[in-house]
């Protein structure tokens, strides 16, 4: 058995998810190859070679893979697929975009967002917004899987393994990259941050999210939001933590003015320590919080910033 891991990178910089997906891969088989597909990806390939457990890196550097469009990248992965029993992607928006396309082209049923590896065929994955955990066994000869990176600890580093450069180009006739509008932020990315502080509908408006800034600065935290806050238009959707947003599992999660709807809990309940600040003592968020504070957030936040 051997596993192909599709590296997650942004503009040639390897993302931390990759080392976590490799950790999942090493639980399946000892032969792990990483595919780095993109344009100007030398650095990402170098860093992939240094992830413990990786035997080989295949680097495909071509303009046709510059934005990892699903149509092109899926064809590349399918071309390489025959050597592997398992093909693993991170369950990021990139992985989720490409993996099912690969699975369908290979005529395989995909297993999404695994959180644990039982054996080479059997995996655990959350369903119903994390209200149930399913153990599923793949009956396919070859598995296409996405991995919830936050459920695995990153693999260590190693002395670099070999990198095989492959030249390949697939020009899609059907889709084209137009632009990317990146959320500008000095803060760590939500899914990688050691501390996350999120605001909910209790924040009342978008301007009040500024109250979280000082605290986030002091804690080196990323700022998130509940779906209610996103739906109300307070903040953009890429800040959303929950079933329909990002899944996070930081060391410390601070929920401010968030009631704790099922769909939000699905995105953060695996955090190591959860703090909830809410003025409603009956809010369901307190049932999952390690430390609860019943208080008006407009009093508590400035106080918290002072106290840190």
């Amino acid at each position: 058995m051997s596993v192909l891991v599709i590296a997650e990178h942004e503009s040639g910089v390897l993302k931390p998810e990759t080392a976590k997906v490799v950790a999942a891969a090493t639980k399946i088989a000892s032969h792990v190859t990483v595919l780095v597909a993109g344009h100007n990806i030398a650095e990402a390939a170098d860093h992939s070679a240094q992830i413990a457990g990786v035997q080989k890196v295949v680097a495909v550097d071509d303009a046709s893979f510059a934005h990892q469009l699903a149509e092109n990248t899926s064809e590349l992965v399918v071309e390489l697929a025959s050597d592997f029993s398992h093909i693993l992607f991170s369950a990021s928006t990139t992985g989720k975009n490409i993996a099912p396309r690969v699975a369908a082209l290979l005529d395989k049923s995909q297993i999404s967002e695994i959180i644990d590896v039982i054996d080479a065929d059997t995996f655990k994955r959350p369903i119903y917004a994390g209200n149930a955990i399913a153990t599923v066994k793949s009956l396919d000869s070859q598995k296409v899987i996405t991995v919830r990176a936050s459920a695995f600890d990153a693999a260590d580093t190693q002395a670099a393994c070999d990198i095989e450069a492959r030249s390949q180009s697939i020009a899609s006739q059907v889709s084209e990259f137009v632009s990317i509008e990146q959320t500008e932020s000095e803060r760590p990315e939500l899914t990688a941050a050691p501390v996350v502080i999120s605001g909910g509908r209790g924040m009342q408006n978008g301007e009040n999210f500024a109250l979280l800034n000082g605290i986030a600065d002091k804690l080196g935290a990323a700022i998130g939001a509940s779906r209610a806050a996103v739906d109300a238009g307070f903040v953009p959707n890429d800040m959303q933590v929950g079933q329909t947003g990002k899944i996070v599992a930081p060391n410390l999660y601070i929920a401010v003015g968030i009631s704790g709807a099922i769909q939000h809990l699905a995105g953060m309940k695996d955090s190591k320590v959860i703090v909830a600040i809410n003025k409603d003592p009956e809010a369901p968020i307190f049932q999952v919080a390690d430390y609860g504070l019943v208080a008006d957030l407009f009093d508590a936040l400035p106080e918290l910033e002072q106290a840190l």
Binding site: S92, S175, V178, T183, D238
Partner: peptide
């Protein structure tokens, strides 16, 4: 326009 991790990506599809 697609909601991707870290921002918004726009693609043109035939």
């Amino acid at each position: 326009t697609r909601e991707v991790d870290g921002g918004l990506q726009t693609v043109s599809l035939s």
